[in-house]
């Protein structure tokens, strides 16, 4: 199946993935300028390549300032990405959403919270800890 045929316009974005028909010359032939035409940079598409699987969340707390996450920072989570060791992920731990580092050690995945002296949480299916989705960007505002 040719998946690339389906180019989706984000409901938030007015940008399209293909030039619109109006850009063609009046004669119906493609304008030679089309070859050189560039589109304005679109931050939405840069940060959110997969609108359907991308979610925004808010950092709550000061525990991960060292790692670059400040209170009230905006997290961009893309569930279409496969989590990898070293990723920051949103995980569900004891029924709530928590920011964790994904570690791989002794052939298993572990969640590591803010304090590396604390025990790691194994992702073994026995405990009710799951990865909600990998964090792909964090946006920090200097003025609020």
């Amino acid at each position: 199946m040719n998946v690339s045929r389906f180019a989706y316009a984000s409901p938030r974005s007015t940008s399209l993935l293909a030039p619109s028909p109006e850009l063609r010359g009046a004669s119906g032939f493609p304008s030679p300028a089309d070859d050189y035409r560039e589109f304005p940079l679109d931050l939405d598409r840069y940060l959110v390549p997969h609108p359907a699987s991308t979610f925004f969340m808010r950092v709550s707390g000061h525990g991960l300032v060292q790692a670059g996450f400040h209170d009230k920072d905006l997290l961009i989570i893309d569930r279409a990405l496969s989590p990898r060791a070293g990723d920051w992920v949103v995980a569900t731990i004891d029924g709530s959403l928590s920011l964790q580092r994904l570690d791989s050690h002794a052939g298993r995945f572990w969640l590591q919270g803010e304090d590396s002296r604390l025990a790691r949480v194994p992702l073994d299916g026995e405990h009710d800890h799951r990865i909600w989705g990998p964090v792909c960007h964090v946006i920090h505002a200097f003025r609020r």
Binding site: M57, S60, G63, F69, S96, L97, S98, E114
Partner: peptide, 14 residues
Amino acid sequence: CYTTRWDELPQVST
């Protein structure tokens, strides 16, 4: 409204 309002986004604890 977790996905449609900036001031109601899910909170992630650290």
